[in-house]
Simulated scan of single mutants.
Amino acid sequence: MWVPAAVCGLLALLLGLPFAGGSTPGAIDAVVAGWTAHLSPGVLRALVFPTEPYVVCALGVLAVVLCLRAGRKREAALALAVPLLAILLTAVLLKPLYDRWKNDTLVYPSGHTVSLVAVLTVLVLVTRKAFVVVLSALALLAAAAGLVGLGYHYLTDVAGGTLFAVAVVLVMWPVPRPAPAPSAG
């Protein structure tokens, strides 16, 4: 999982460079903001629902419980610790480093997105189920539209947060080992 982690991490770091130290949206940011401008505030608030701390925490608890039920204590600890690490690195290191502002707030990478995507990535790795991947992608798309539409973030902030969260989880998550073959003799 090191290669995808490295690619996501590098893309997250590079994506923010053109916007560092500024508050101007990029061309894609402006287009997506235009797409979401017609949505009502109620719809936009519903779209950002997956990023609410109590939702993210509930999803994190679900991941821990699933690990514990499967007897995977190490993964249960990581399911709790790794998203917290991603959130901490975003708030303490990356946001001040990139210094990208919107509405008097540091926005790159999106902390809303990092928290959601880190937990969703853990759930995908824990469950290894296609429907979890699909639901996670839908939750991310909804959250992205809501975050942009409400003016909390630019699309590039959401993309950077997504890439960074995936990178942190993949680099910290243990590589699954195949079950040992039964002894023939």
Rank of each mutant, 00 (worst) to 15 (best):
V3Y: 12
V3M: 11
A5F: 04
A6H: 06
C8W: 02
G9K: 03
A12K: 00
L14E: 10
L17D: 04
P18C: 04
F19A: 04
A20F: 01
A20I: 00
T24H: 11
P25F: 07
P25K: 10
A30M: 06
V31C: 12
V32N: 00
W35D: 05
H38Q: 12
H38D: 10
L39A: 15
L39V: 13
L39W: 13
S40Y: 14
P41F: 12
P41K: 07
G42F: 08
V43R: 09
R45I: 00
R45T: 04
L47K: 07
L47D: 11
F49T: 15
F49Q: 13
P50F: 02
P53D: 11
V55N: 02
V56S: 02
C57H: 13
L59S: 02
L59V: 01
V61Q: 08
V61I: 15
L62P: 01
C67V: 14
L68Q: 11
L68E: 12
K73E: 14
E75W: 08
L78W: 06
A79I: 06
A79L: 13
A79F: 01
L80G: 10
V82G: 06
P83C: 05
L84H: 12
L85Q: 08
L85A: 13
A86G: 08
A86I: 11
I87V: 14
L88C: 13
L88W: 15
T90M: 07
L94T: 04
L94Y: 01
P96I: 04
D99V: 00
R100M: 04
K102M: 12
L106P: 00
V107I: 09
Y108F: 15
S110C: 08
G111Q: 08
L116I: 12
A118G: 05
V119L: 13
L120A: 06
L120G: 04
V122T: 09
V122D: 06
V122F: 02
V122S: 04
L123Y: 11
T127D: 15
T127P: 12
R128G: 14
R128P: 10
F131V: 05
V133I: 11
S136P: 07
A137R: 07
A137Q: 10
A139C: 10
A139R: 09
A139Y: 05
A144Q: 06
A144F: 06
A144Y: 05
A145Q: 07
G146C: 03
G149D: 07
G149C: 10
D157F: 05
D157S: 02
D157M: 03
V158L: 05
V158H: 03
F164D: 01
V166C: 04
V168A: 03
M172W: 09
M172D: 05
R177A: 15
A179G: 11
A179L: 14
A181T: 14
S183T: 14
S183W: 14
G185S: 14
G185M: 14
